[in-house]
Design a protein around this nucleic acid. Structure first.
Lengths: 236, 236
DNA sequence: CAGAATAATATGTCTAGACATAATCCGAGT
DNA sequence: ACTCGGATTATGTCTAGACATATTATTCTG
């Protein structure tokens, strides 16, 4: 089961990547120092240069290596730590805990957003947007409040009442996008949030703020406010 | 400057990756559907199969594609959203805002940790660990409190008084590690946190909880509690 | 000696072919 | 029908060589 025999020539690009990463973490190759060239590594691993190249490119993409033509490959100064957070659809997130998924639409209206949301959606003053307030439940316990503003001109939106399917799910399923911003923070629960989450006003809650866009055009922005105690986890 | 002439055969793996990504985002290839095989794509792009392979592997790593031997390649159902959070050294994080970095050691002692930290460090009952409480400042404003527990047997630890350099920085610089866990959440500021951050007890604060290990052995675990209003940002 | 032209070098990428491996498909036998 | 195996197939990976490209190092020149 265990890798009892660490053969010097385990030439697969993933094995080479792991070995190089090990040498970086073990300080065998110090931060900032130049590591052997691809040709040298290929010789020492007993494989083709392309195989080494594939491994080093992977580590460079992960931020562990800095590579420059002719300059060689060096270990990144500040081995930038990256945590890969997976942001699942809320339904999947809840079902993954084993609880039954529940959904309740709290409000759906066309309204002029507050300045904060207006800025996030990059729309002119007094432009009405579609606002949807909804609650996601794990079993019978409130899990997260979704406060979303949507560009009312999105195709198919009029056929989406959001009384059964959450905007979170509907948008992912129907609206293509190219990117966006996301941020995480803490705030004191508002009156609306506290009521929906069955907690007290001012309770410390975790929130995700997110804007999704297609090119330059903002499609939707959302505040997800989780019930107290919620944590986002990952490994690094 | 701009790519005015989008030639049908711009065969570089990055160009192919971009083109495939475009077809996915434009719903030309719908979520869940199987896309052409590597051989077919290679023919249509007029390049070698390896080139297509490299492009598709990149998209698969990004979570946009699901690939299975013999099963073919299909567009991911729920384009698993991944946010890559960069977790910088606190000093760099503060200096990036333009503020001067400040550091104050609040406490340094050998003590038996509370059950919660004991569990995180995976040590037996009544094992004393090194506890360091420190404050990081942006200019003259408190930025984040670092409450850390360290394996007292780490080499070189006795020469690290932590009165000038934070454990955060010292550990990254001196102790190799292989992985760990990290989680993000919100909680109400404790008395100690409130005093250090110059805020009120019970204020909603953002916290990072992190354990770093070398193989199976836990090296250190830390609670980082940020001043109210702090947000972690990234793009997707 | 400064600056420009030139050589050297490490990475970036493509290719064409080969074999490995995991899944699926499908037919044979019970 | 149902199960077991083999044939098929798409991806996974390696290779050896070639040329491209960016950058550094060196040499030539005014």
């Amino acid at each position: 089961m265990t890798q009892t025999a660490p053969r010097p020539t385990a030439s697969s690009w993933q094995a080479i990547r792991d070995e190089v990463r090990r040498r970086i973490h073990s300080r065998e190759w110090a931060p900032g120092s130049v590591i052997p060239t691809e040709v040298e590594l290929a010789a020492s691993f007993g494989c083709a240069r392309m195989t080494v190249n594939r491994a080093l490119q992977d580590l460079a993409a992960a931020g562990l290596l800095d590579r420059r033509r002719k300059g060689g490959t060096r270990v990144a100064l500040h081995p930038v730590e990256q945590a890969r957070l997976e942001i699942p659809v809320i339904r999947a997130e809840i079902e993954a805990t084993g609880a039954a998924y529940g959904y309740r639409l709290l409000e759906r209206r066309l309204a002029v957003p507050l300045p904060e949301f207006q800025a996030r959606m990059q729309v002119p003053d007094r432009t009405p947007l579609l606002n949807v307030l909804a609650l996601h439940l794990a079993g019978d316990r409130p899990y997260v409040v979704e406060d979303r503003w949507i560009d009312p001109d999105l195709p198919g939106l009029s056929e989406a009442p959001f009384d059964e399917t959450s905007p979170n799910e509907w948008l992912l399923e129907h609206i293509p996008y190219t990117g966006g911003e996301i941020s995480f923070g803490a705030h004191a629960a508002s009156v609306i949030e506290a009521r929906a989450l069955q907690t007290s006003v001012g309770a410390a809650v975790f929130g995700i703020r997110r804007t999704t866009r297609d090119g330059e055009h903002a499609l939707t922005t959302v505040d997800l406010t989780y019930a107290p105690g919620h944590r986002m986890r990952t490994t690094l």
